[in-house]
Simulated scan of single mutants.
Amino acid sequence: MNRFHDQTVLVTGGTGGQGSSHVRAYHQEGANVMIGGIDTERGAALADELGTRAHFTDLDVTDENSWSAAVRATESAFGALNVLVNNAGVQNPPVPIENTEQATWSRILDINLTGTFLGIKVAAPALRRAKGGAVVNIGSTMGLGGTAHYAPYVASKWAVRGLTRTAALELGRDRIRVNTIHPGVIATPFIQEPAAGAAAAIADFYSPEPFAIPRLGEPADVTRLLLFLTSSDASFITGAEYVIDGGLLLGPALPAEAA
């Protein structure tokens, strides 16, 4: 399929577990892909692997000037920007609120929230120049409830929800759609490896056994939904939130023998 032929996509955090899945899928669907991130070595390797229609740009999502340079590089390489995927994010080491360092709080919000805000702010004029497009902000199921010991991450993802809805209202008349995906526990290093300063990974606290669909999610599960939301098939969808968690938020499923 070539749903994104002649379109250009910028993916932040494009070298991570979910990000690289998104990058590869868009490229396979015919898109020009700009891989944004801070890991120059991995980003350049991914661009080389994909070959034509793929470039890497160094992007610190907390820096507006870095965003401006990334958008300029995208338009210079491919002529337009049609889709922005605000995928970059970090988690905090699990710690109670009263023991959370302000520097940790600030870093998590700077990347997860301010980075998303700056992406929308800087990319909006480019999307407008392209006569419309789509933005998807990657949230989290932690942005739909409380999670003990993860206050900075939870707060950042809750805030992304309000930012998404506001951006959808402001940009809709410019034919720019803005939506959010809230992944649950996805099998990537992000949740399978401890955050810096942490002894345990998020996955250690979540067994999929009680999920309605009793497995961890795969990056491809999120990618398939992302491709739909940024395609013309979703042209009447904006300001929406999509949860992809295998039923995590539904509550525990009955064991098979009790069903």
Rank of each mutant, 00 (worst) to 15 (best):
F56Q: 05
M1W: 04
S140N: 03
L50K: 04
L109E: 03
S231T: 13
L250R: 07
A54W: 00
A45Y: 07
A148N: 11
Y242P: 10
N179A: 03
L227I: 06
L109Q: 10
Q192A: 15
I138P: 06
G162P: 12
V9I: 09
V23A: 11
A124D: 13
I186K: 09
P219K: 02
R224G: 08
L250F: 04
L81F: 08
I244D: 05
F190K: 10
S20K: 00
V71S: 08
I97N: 12
G246K: 04
E75Q: 14
Q7G: 04
L127N: 03
A54R: 02
T147Y: 13
P125Q: 04
G19E: 04
D39F: 00
W158I: 13
D110G: 15
G79L: 08
F56I: 00
T164R: 08
E170C: 06
P93A: 13
F211K: 00
G37S: 10
V160C: 08
A168S: 11
H27Q: 02
A54N: 07
P183Y: 13
V160S: 10
V160H: 06
D245S: 01
F211M: 05
A167V: 05
V136Q: 01
V178Q: 10
D221N: 02
W105H: 02
V154M: 04
A45M: 04
D63K: 11
N137W: 09
A201W: 04
V85I: 15
A253T: 01
E193V: 11
N112T: 09
H5W: 00
F117G: 00
G146L: 00
R128P: 08
V160A: 12
M1F: 09
Y150Q: 14
P94N: 07
S140A: 01
R161Q: 07
T188S: 10
D221Y: 02
V33Q: 07
P93H: 14
E218M: 09
T104C: 13
A200H: 14
Q102H: 10
E98R: 08
A259Q: 12
T40D: 07
D204R: 07
E49L: 12
R224F: 14
I202F: 14
I244Y: 04
S235L: 03
N179F: 01
A256P: 00
S66A: 12
T15V: 06
G19T: 11
I202D: 13
S21V: 09
T166S: 15
I186V: 15
W67Q: 11
P252D: 07
S231K: 11
R129I: 00
G162Q: 08
P208M: 00
L50N: 07
A134Q: 03
A80D: 12
V136D: 12
V160Q: 15
F56W: 06
A167Q: 05
A159D: 10
A199Y: 11
T62G: 03
L113T: 05
L163I: 11
L84F: 14
